[in-house]
Structures are given as C-alpha cells and as structure tokens.
C-alpha cells in the first residue's frame, strides 16, 4: 500500500511540474464551452449546419476537405441535413468523371457518394495560388494541431496589428496564437462574413465557434457514437467488476476460513 502512495505522489509531483513548465511557455488559448466535450458530449446540430455554411462560403475557397463525402452531411451524428438537402448541396458542385465511352473526361453534378470537391487540383497549384503556403487539408485538422479545437478557435480570433518592432513581409499577417506569430492566411472571419439562414447573428466569435465545431465533427465523425458506447461499456465493466469482486471473495473465503 505504501508503495502505491509513493507512486501516486511522484506522479502528481511530476505532472504539476510539467504543467507549470508548459504554462510558462505558452500563451493561454481562448476557451469557449464546446458542446461535444465531456462524457455525454454531443454536437450542436445547429452549430454544425452553420459551421458547414462558414466552411463552404469562407474556408473552402482555399482549404480542401478530401476525406469527406457529401453523404456524410446527412449521416447520423453529423450536421444531419436531410437526404434531399444533402443531395441538393452535392448537386451544386461539379465533379470530373469519366472516361466515357469516347475516352473523354466530363463534368457532372456531384452525387452523395462523391468526395468534397477540392479547391485546387494539386498541392503545387495550391501553393502557387497562396504565395507558397499550402492551405492544409481540413478533414482532420482539429486533431492535427496540439491544442486542438481551442487552438484553431484562438487562431481564428487571434489576428492583431503587429506590435512595434515586428516587421511583416507581404502576404504575412500577425496572429497572437499562431506558432511563431506569423501566418500566411489573412483574417478569414469578419462580423457578417456569412448570413445565417436560421437567424443567428454572424459575429466573429459565433462563426469561429460554429466552424470549429464543424471541424471537430469532420475530424471525428463518430464522436457521438463513441461517447455513447463508452458510457455503456464503462458502466458494464463496473457492474461486472463488482460481480467478479464478490465471486472472488466467496472463492477465497474457502481457504481463508480454513486458515
């Protein structure tokens, strides 16, 4: 028993020092109340649908989302657009298909099974159009940055005039939360950048929160199923553990009583 306390003590001590060291290094990220955090966390459907709107109207002109398909938009646990809405969204994009019987590629409206249309044909084209910086694919972005959703949220809202003494090259912007403070993306969101159809006021914070919620879903589309299953699994394990504990006591009592 004493050993266990020693280990616990050491772990706590270590984690405190780690935490302190980290806190010294980094500026605290902006926080907001994410609906998907916690044991029962779920996505806010409205936020996901609005977030999709922000993504298509603002981000999608530079950022691809190559692992998403239009069908995902109507799947359970996501924005849950109706099948008809999702079909209509898909049909508003043109994809290249083919070759047809004449051996030629042709354009057609996208279907549910198609992947999200990419803004650029390839990485080189994307770099050429963006001053050498490749706008990262956004499919798993929320998992690909340390700090995750808080970090992306902070960067979206972290644009500032550079402090005196910092000179910026052309096409480089100052961002409080960006690694190295220099970012090649100009501020993407301004109050009223999009017009929400559900009447929500499109403030900078609101849009940032919505689009980051959307990004969390694209990175982790089964998050809701995972939380739900996790609760059941852990509850089940606790019940079984209790049963096994009492079975163990019974079985061991056979020899303990003899001793």
């Amino acid at each position: 028993m004493k050993d266990i306390f020693k280990i616990i003590y050491l772990t706590i001590l270590l984690s405190i020092t780690v935490h302190q060291v980290k806190a010294e290094e980094k500026l605290d990220l902006l926080k907001t109340d994410w609906s998907f955090k916690g044991l029962f966390g779920k996505f806010d459907r409205g936020a996901l649908q609005r977030g999709y709107q922000v993504y298509t109207e603002v981000c999608a002109s530079c950022h691809s989302m190559k692992y998403l398909s239009y069908r995902n938009l109507s799947e359970k646990g996501g924005p849950e657009f109706s099948i008809e809405q999702a079909k209509a969204i898909a049909a508003s994009f043109e994809v290249t298909d083919g070759p047809n019987d004449d051996g030629e590629m042709f354009q057609r409206p996208a279907k549910l099974s198609d992947k999200f249309v990419m803004p650029y044909g390839n990485i080189k084209e994307a770099q050429a159009a963006n001053g050498g910086a490749y706008p990262p694919d956004m499919s798993v972005l929320a998992k690909a940055r340390s700090g995750g959703v808080d970090y992306i949220y902070s960067v979206l809202l972290g644009y500032e005039d550079p402090p005196s003494g910092v000179t910026l090259d052309d096409g480089v912007y100052y961002n409080k939360y960006m690694y190295g403070n220099k970012i090649k993306m100009s501020q993407p969101l301004y109050d009223g950048s999009v017009e929400y159809s559900d009447g929500t006021e499109a403030t900078e914070e609101q849009m940032a929160k919505d689009v980051v919620t959307f990004l969390m879903w694209t990175a982790e589309p089964h998050l809701e199923a995972r939380h739900k299953m996790g609760f059941k699994a852990i509850l089940y394990l606790i019940v079984l553990t209790i049963l096994v504990y009492f079975s163990m006591k019974k079985i061991w009592s056979r020899i303990e009583s003899k001793v």
């Binding site: 939380h227 299953m229 996790g230 852990i234 394990l237 606790i238 079984l240 553990t241 096994v244 163990m248």
Partner: peptide, 18 residues
C-alpha cells in the same frame, strides 16, 4: 487475475472512449 483485469479494462476503456 480476472478482477484485476477488469479494473485495468476500465482505465483502458476510458482512454479509448474519452
């Protein structure tokens, strides 16, 4: 062993699901 394994699995499940 089974009892200890179940305790271990609870920790394991916490990582996997949360």
């Amino acid at each position: 062993d089974g009892f200890a394994l179940l305790m271990f699995m609870i920790v394991f499940a916490f990582f996997v699901f949360y």
